[in-house]
Nucleic acid binder design. Structure first.
Lengths: 182, 182
DNA sequence: GTCTATAGGATGATAGAC
DNA sequence: GTCTATCATCCTATAGAC
């Protein structure tokens, strides 16, 4: 049910999603969704928290890996791999731009800062490198959210932008165009 | 009325904004807002188009300037200056993550690609530099949307992140904390 | 645990007066 | 041009049965 909610919220945003859409995606009744999570807002907060936990776990795993690929690059791959968890990065992104909402904003800021702190303290990045890393993460989120993949075949600039922003990830993503989306 | 709508949409997003909130912000009646723009969606599209026009105009102006500051840097300043137009960058950002909506997605993708094309063709950036430029733009949008400024005084990481991402812009922004937001 | 039925409130849009 | 009144729909949440 959380994963179903993640997918729908990722696609339509917090306000744009109805508890009924989540219920249908999860194969349960609408009142049951509300019964389990209390309110729609609590459901979204649960989605955000699971997304942040998943993200941090992926980063820790990438950091612990023994490999000759530089840490910085491994973390980028780990981030892009999260695209397979449909709606996860986009739900986060929707949370990030809703900072004006008291509860959502609090969780979003705390999560964002936790990632930044992790990149510096544990992954050993400088402030500048961590900032660049996050910037490219936000770019990737945006490209997915804006569905730039839809223009891959028809617009050379779109293709170029995608290839710059997520090399190695495109074959996987292009295999599932048209459907729900990441 | 468009500027009022821009501010509200920037803060609450497309679905999270009611035509009544826009009407109040503009000092008119709710039916009048609908009467003028036809539908809420058309209103949002008008906001997006104005934002994109304003953005491109700012870039062209920065490009035409005679200065010893490198073009690349001038464009960054021009972008950050758009923060004074409340809600403009955030309305754009909300549009960007709604790529799944047929109409909004179409306008958002076209606008994003137009900016990318401009950066390469007219500002003379390489694909990589243009990609980096856009990435940092998305980062700035995110930091504003998440209201990272609210943590400036209490969280050293937040402060650091803001200073990395928008040097020279903080004094201006900090002068209007707590109110609506950019 | 999960459903059906439904209340209660908001919201986008229309009609029509001034 | 702009408003008041209002409808119809949608949506979150609750009540209560199985």
């Amino acid at each position: 049910m959380l994963t179903a909610a993640t997918e729908v919220f990722g696609q339509r945003g917090y306000a744009g999603t109805t508890t009924d859409q989540v219920a249908i995606a999860a194969g349960v009744s609408q009142p049951y969704v509300v019964r389990i999570f209390g309110t729609k807002e609590k459901l979204f907060l649960a989605v955000l928290e699971r997304a942040l936990d998943t993200l941090m776990a992926a980063f820790r795993r990438a950091l612990a890996e023994v490999s000759d690929i530089p840490v910085h690059h491994r973390m980028g791959i780990a981030y892009a791999d999260l695209l397979t968890d449909r709606g996860l990065l986009l739900s986060l992104m929707h949370g990030f731009v809703l900072g004006s909402d008291p509860e959502i904003g609090r969780v979003a800021r705390a999560g964002f800062l936790a990632v930044y702190a992790f990149l510096k303290a544990e992954a050993g990045m400088t402030s500048e490198v961590a900032g660049d890393f996050l910037a490219h993460g936000m770019m990737l989120n945006t490209l997915v959210g804006i569905r730039m993949l839809d223009e891959y075949d028809t617009n050379p600039d779109a293709r170029e932008l995608l290839e710059i922003s997520m090399p190695n990830k495109l074959p996987m993503l292009r295999g599932r165009q048209g459907s729900a989306q990441a």
